[in-house]
Design a protein around this nucleic acid. Sequence first.
DNA 1: GCATTGAATTGGAGCGCTCCAAGCATTAGC
DNA 2: GCTAATGCTTGGAGCGCTCCAATTCAATGC
Lengths: 326, 326
Amino acid sequence: MDDVARSAGVSRALVSLVMRGSDKVSEQRRTAVLKAAAELGYRPNAAARNLAQRFSNTIGVVISDLHNTFFADIVDGIHERATEEGMRLSLNTSWLRDADERRAIDQFLENRVDAIIVVGGQGPADVLIDTAKQLPVVSVGEVVHGIDTIVNDDELGAALVVDHLVELGHKDIVHIDGGAGAGADRRRRGFISAMERYGLQPRVIRGDFTDKAGVESAELLIDEGTLPTAIFAANDLAALGAMDCLEDHQLRVPADISIVGYDNTAIAGLHHISLTTVNQPRVSMGRQAFDAVFERLDGGRREAVTVVVQPTLVDRSTTGPCPTLR
Amino acid sequence: MDDVARSAGVSRALVSLVMRGSDKVSEQRRTAVLKAAAELGYRPNAAARNLAQRFSNTIGVVISDLHNTFFADIVDGIHERATEEGMRLSLNTSWLRDADERRAIDQFLENRVDAIIVVGGQGPADVLIDTAKQLPVVSVGEVVHGIDTIVNDDELGAALVVDHLVELGHKDIVHIDGGAGAGADRRRRGFISAMERYGLQPRVIRGDFTDKAGVESAELLIDEGTLPTAIFAANDLAALGAMDCLEDHQLRVPADISIVGYDNTAIAGLHHISLTTVNQPRVSMGRQAFDAVFERLDGGRREAVTVVVQPTLVDRSTTGPCPTLR
DNA sequence: GCATTGAATTGGAGCGCTCCAAGCATTAGC
DNA sequence: GCTAATGCTTGGAGCGCTCCAATTCAATGC
């Protein structure tokens, strides 16, 4: 920076102003500085800037699973708004592991990001609540009390699924749950209470938000000989895994067994898959997550908000009439 | 930090040593410092540390498309090795746009990451080469001369596809290419020369690495009435898009038309999809990308290396005999 | 008992930037 | 011609840490 200042014949402070796009610099000096900077290949050191400024203009985004395109859409939404407001994003992933989520948040804190958005958090609620005392924290997909939250109504979503399946005559429905995953609890609860409302026995298998969990759960059901007539998986990935495993065993979907997912990811909509699932407005949720952060950074809001968006059932071809009825 | 030092009754420098896990600190002082740090909720400021240390222990990873799980596997490989070596990752995405790739690299440079890995780069080769003068840069998927590169042999991969299709009797094959995407050039060239080797007329449609490109290309072919008997898409995503569009128009795959993708992403392997595609050892490519970075940081190597891994054809059910032959 | 060694600890300079108060022109107002 | 106001520009302190050389302390050898 010194070199640039010298070469442009101005002070260091003036270079700083130019690099930050201040309007308090005469056009003449500005061009001189920019020219010198370009010639010398000068690039501001963000570490030094952040240190002096006390803020980084960056939002840390923790994505729980890069393999799940559901999160990609949410990040799209966050990015869209962040770009509009001139803020940067720094991404990190937790590989669906609690420990890695903590590590990712820690890394962001050490880097002094201005805010953190956790997308599909696995659950270290204590960490989030603690962190929120220092900077804005938004959780997308998982409700954390005392923290800004953007979620869909998972209980309703699960109820929509049960309604749909019951209408098709299904009585024996298994839910492969999302374990500790974001929203998994509420989907499970929604499933159970909806089943009970119909006087049906809810069966739940412990899983998670991966295709692997879907495969393993389906295998378990087959091995035990306790296959239901319909499976409601915690998300599309698990639904696909389960479906794939069932086909391995010559079971036809939906003729022999119906399957429903959750999230309405791009794959679900493909003809070959055509998975019945529950839609969440992903991109819009991402935008709202950014907005929640932005409101706080702008100094506007201090109390936590919870934005609940409405899920909708997307009826495709993996669900059909209960086979015993036909 | 001062507070911690005071509270633990030691100097600032000693706190610094403890926080960095130095072994030159007595057990007694170490515990005293850690206790004080925990009580005060002290967390080192990475910006200040990076500034003083002149390195950040962080590798910047630019992912070209969060919607493509192909990249997630590569990041898995990078992450695996980075964790072993105690290095951090910082992610960024380019949304398949040249400008955003530059922006992402710029952001990393300002943050003074120790090295940059570009996964599926779109092509600002000048930027990469320039950047590589300052720090280790590795390109995964796209060959950039003068820069460490991890690629599969795209020309061979494309040739394998053509071999396979020709063997099935196909003569009229269209390649939906990857536009400016990573490896797209080489796949296109491999396709063209393989076709010519068989004395066949290669047809190429300009596309990119998204499902949308697949849909649009298929629509174009249908509208023009120039459908071939087989389509080779630049990647799985585009293949899925094309396949989906064809089904929309009541065309059966592979009875009416065969389709091949590239990458062998998780979706391709699903029964319902069962896409014939070309496999790349993704996780291993990620590991090798990290290793290339690490060798340089270790001071070992100075000349650029190009690691070429071998692709293999994965023959599934979206390819079948040429319909005119049956 | 004294010098020697090695390990543990410390103060202070410096990393590259921003911020602030102050300085300097230049123009405007009377 | 003087003061005030305005617009640019500057020097220097300080952000929170690491690094280095120097210092302290305890243990060892003769």
